[in-house]
Write a protein that binds this DNA or RNA. Structure first.
Lengths: 192, 192, 192, 192
DNA sequence: CGTTAAGCGAGACGGTACGTCCTGTCTTAAC
DNA sequence: GTTAAGACAGGACGTACCGTCTCGCTTAACG
């Protein structure tokens, strides 16, 4: 015997997440208020606070929904090719309007331990898992050194992308990404 | 014709910067307000706003003063040794209480383009310059590949440290830092 | 063709009115919300709104039910005696816990013209009608001056009681009520 | 030693009280919000909350300031004449736009014991003191019965006016006030 | 007897106002 | 003449209720 009463209004949920995404993308990180989101989405503030404990959690969901429809893992036949495609995909995301949301999320991470954990486990870890599989396949095929620490390889490949997005000290063009990859790759392959 | 009246009160400035550092270190990133700093430092708010245009600038100064008394560039005789010491130093800073200030600064970076620029040019770039010199010396001595892009080498060495500090997905122990370095280093040395 | 479906649930109605009375009496005027009444009475909010257009109407009914079982008109043989008993009854009500409801009702009166009218016609006028009959009988018996304006006599007798309940500047003890009556009564009797 | 820092801004205070009076008079009791007053008075909400603990206290001050410039006590030579003028003045106030504020205040009285006390002591008691002096003078001159209870006389004279303002069951025209006075007056004069 | 329109407890919804908090500017008395 | 203290205008926050609507269940008159 299921519960009585109205269910969560999914139309309202969609309106809220869409508005959150749109406003953040167009106006940048901190310059969006919950009041605005509520008004713009034609929603009572309480409806937001009922389902999300903080602005960060809301932003998180808005981003997650956007990325969920993710592309299938690449399969070029070589570890190098697969890693390259994955890095380009990540860089492309970081250059899209969603970039503003990613930055916002990282900022929120600092003030809210719960969000930090969520970001780590649900988003960061998820991406890492996929990347890790590609590397492991390369090792198994004998392309890559068998003594690689997968976590470290991940850090070396993706941290530079993240920092460029965060700090903006260098560009994130496809060319720049390739260059990054080519610089580190020799450390991963078996010596001739 | 010298100015009349008291000069900038350096005792007050010190009290402000100390309080900023202490409060941020003890309470974490966002949970410190200008009002609090003023009250805690027994200083009028105006005195803060007179000398710093924003909270971010204040935090920035508080951090800068703390690292100004920096160590001399290492000189172990090898590029590997020097890079290793530099990475360990950065990791140590990121593990100290100042970690909270670093995170705060990055967060402020997002909402304030002026601060972002300052952070890039004065802090990030400064560190890079030092690191870059070490690498260049390695190249000149024939230890490292001459075709290395110094910016990229920097990204590969330090971005993983930054991301570990920001996200906290992996540890930043001396051992872990060594491991990171050893994983990427083969990409930099000349092939046998 | 009579209506289908269940009839009004009288148990729920009773629970609502009881809860309204109890909460208002115990917590005072404004500090009771419809949400609370609904929850406390184990009733859906809609069930309240279905039968009462506003909180004021609900409070009104709660009070009316409480005084409906009113005493029969007094008959002591003299106008003075009858008026005295009526005044004492009113004062007694104003000293009972129902005092809180009476005050609440007057407060609601201000914001809601419909309730103001209802209060005037159904409650205030009702009480006045009874009082008026007593006075008229006194006139008819030759005890009281025939030129009395009944409305004004009513005002003179009961307004002081209401104001003492509302403002609380003087007590409402039986003795005080007698004193009030004795002070004004000479104005009503025929001169010797 | 005296305190440092800025003093209370009397221009802002005036703007707040004026706005409160105007908005309440024009829109009636409950339909005015603190937000509106703040916005309309070009004042931060905090400035209101800094000086008044509640909306009721604010309304109270707005009314008090309005009545402070009160007329001098009447002196017609007879108690009847003086009482008549005083009653007419009160009735006039109750018919003016300030009527809305008086009603609002009484309503607030119910939910806030502190305001109730203030209303009683500062406003109600003040008016009573003046009226009482008039009656006492009448007794001293031998016009009125020496055994009158002044509090009760006050209740008999003014409570009907208050109730007519509150409930609105009868009119408050000058003529009606005279009629009220004439009905009760015989009870106060010495028998022939 | 099954259909079906009410009534029900529960509670999510779009809103409005609240009272608190913080920002960055301005004002005043004290040193 | 700069300082500390702190009042000011402004505006976002998260909470509390409002009155309406929606859900799934129960009840009883109708067909």
């Amino acid at each position: 015997m299921g519960k009585r009463g109205p269910k969560r209004d999914e139309a309202a949920e969609k309106r809220i997440l869409d508005t959150t995404r749109d406003l953040i993308c167009e106006r940048g990180a901190t310059r969006v208020t919950i009041n605005e989101i509520a008004e713009h989405a034609s929603v009572g503030k309480q409806t937001i606070y009922r389902w999300w404990p903080s602005k960060a959690a809301l932003v998180f969901d808005a981003l997650e929904r956007e990325i969920k429809a993710s592309s299938p893992p690449p399969d070029t036949g070589t570890a190098y090719g697969d890693v390259r495609i994955q890095m380009q995909r990540v860089a492309k995301l970081m250059n899209s309007p969603l970039r503003a949301i990613l930055r916002e999320l990282i900022a929120e991470t600092f003030g809210d331990d719960e969000i930090a954990k969520q970001f780590r486990t649900l988003f960061f870890a998820e991406r890492r898992r996929q990347a890790t599989a590609t590397i492991q396949a390369g090792i198994d095929r004998g392309e890559l050194r068998p003594d690689l620490d997968l976590e470290i390889v991940n850090d070396l490949l993706y941290s530079p992308l993240w920092m460029r997005m965060i700090i903006g000290h260098q560009e994130l063009t496809p060319k720049a990404v390739d260059k990054l990859l080519d610089h580190v790759w020799p450390a991963f392959v078996l010596e001739a």
